[in-house]
């Protein structure tokens, strides 16, 4: 299952709710303002363990647009839109935390 989070954890609770609901095989993709959660900040702990398990992805284009490419936290994998498509194809049902 692919969980897509598009809001900053400073603005909404969608990342928190998503984390409450994922199983051992789910992966998380951060897009739009969701990529703010991919940067090193006080909320990074929320994703650290999952990232260490290679289960957190962030959309490169959205990271670049927001000027935070040098701030990406450890172990977060970057994908482009083509990679986004691959994740949707490979990971089964997509859940958007809009």
């Amino acid at each position: 299952m692919l969980h897509i989070v598009n809001k900053s954890s400073f603005e909404r609770n969608s990342l928190k709710s998503c984390l409450n609901t994922i199983d051992d095989t789910s992966i998380i993709l951060l897009i739009e303002d969701g990529v703010i959660s991919a940067a090193n900040n006080v909320n990074s702990y929320m994703l650290a363990d999952l990232a260490a398990d290679s289960r957190v992805f962030a959309l490169q284009e959205d990271i670049d647009a927001r000027g935070i490419s040098s701030k990406v936290a450890d172990n977060i994998k970057l994908v482009d839109y083509a990679g986004f498509v691959d994740l949707v194809v490979e990971q089964g049902t997509a859940v958007s935390w809009v």
């Binding site: 299952m1 409450n20 609901t21 994922i22 199983d23 049902t93 997509a94 958007s96």
Partner: peptide, 16 residues
């Protein structure tokens, strides 16, 4: 949350 996780994982389509 554990039950919700299981229910979510069984779905084919999720409309948000």
């Amino acid at each position: 949350n554990v039950q919700l996780t299981k229910i979510m994982s069984e779905q084919d389509v999720c409309l948000s």
